[in-house]
């Protein structure tokens, strides 16, 4: 494929461009409708706005039920970062134990963790809710961090295990000879070597937690700790059909993740596709 004909390439370019434009249609409407004044929303929902109503954003930003979108965004950020940090700690240590603990024990532990990836949490959510409610972990960020740490650990163990297995033990043996403790070896030698997969775990877990709706709806709705998806859902419930306000809120809610995506595009895609060669 080194020397494709110029015409061929041009054709592909044109095709790709056309498809990309089609793909952008929802983004286009997201942008223009969010700027439409109320008067145009019912009369001409589809056309380009005659005047740009930036006030929609001010109204959307206020959110509903006393939780502004800014507050919701902060809540989402706290939950996401907290969960990512906890999951990295739990996953990397467990994967290390799995990889360095004899074949039978290692395999057993591996499956013990990885089955959790497939079990849909729809079933576990009800008993979890009851218990967490009793110990005061419903309606606040800490509860969600604890919950996601639990739910996302299998995925991180899976990702870490695949990597740790391929790490030769030479480094550790060298460090051990130097008299370093195991904890120190892990922190100073192993964990840094895991950096690429740590990135993958951070991206995957971060995205799942940031965008998850089902659990956040059940655990946070109505609370001041509600996250972006819950806040947007509540907002749409209240302002449905006033598409300009809804879209302003949706736009605000997707800006952080899109911005993150633009900045860290390569790492992010790599994070998703890390397992493929």
């Amino acid at each position: 494929m080194n020397r494709p004909s110029a015409l061929n390439t041009f054709g592909r370019e044109l095709g790709a461009l056309a498809l990309a434009l089609l793909w952008c249609v929802p983004f286009y409407y997201l942008a223009i409708v969010s700027l439409k004044p109320m008067s145009e929303i019912f009369a001409d929902p589809v056309g380009f706005p005659d005047q740009l109503a930036f006030a929609n954003y001010a109204e959307a930003w206020r959110g509903t039920m006393g939780v502004s979108l800014g507050q919701a965004m902060l809540n989402s950020l706290i939950v996401t970062i907290g969960s990512v940090v906890a999951v990295i700690a739990l996953g990397s240590a467990s994967a290390y134990v799995i990889a360095r603990n004899g074949r039978r024990m290692g395999t057993l532990l591996f499956f013990f963790f990885v089955i959790g990836i497939i079990l849909p949490h729809q079933l576990s959510v009800v008993p979890l809710y009851s218990v967490m409610r009793q110990i005061g972990l419903v309606g606040n960020q800490l509860g969600l961090i604890v919950l996601y740490s639990g739910l996302m650990t299998p995925m991180s163990v899976f990702l870490y295990s695949g990597f740790v297995r391929t790490l030769p033990a030479d480094y550790e043996e060298a460090a051990e000879v130097d008299g370093a403790s195991r904890g120190r070896i892990f922190l100073k030698v192993i964990f840094p070597l895991l950096a690429p997969v740590t990135g993958t775990v951070a991206v995957m877990v971060g995205m799942v937690v940031w965008n998850d709706f089902f659990i956040q709806l059940i655990f946070l709705s109505g609370s001041p700790a509600q996250t972006l998806p819950v806040a947007v859902y509540g907002f749409v419930g209240e302002f449905s059909a006033r598409w300009n306000l809804v879209f302003a809120a949706v736009f605000v809610s997707v800006v952080p993740i899109l911005a993150f995506y633009l900045l860290a595009q390569k790492q992010l895609i790599k994070g998703f596709t890390g397992g493929i060669k």
Partner: peptide, 14 residues
């Protein structure tokens, strides 16, 4: 306060 609609009932029951 919980959002009115189904989520209110869910909150009460849980």
């Amino acid at each position: 306060k919980f959002p009115s609609g189904d989520s209110y009932g869910q909150a009460v029951v849980t």
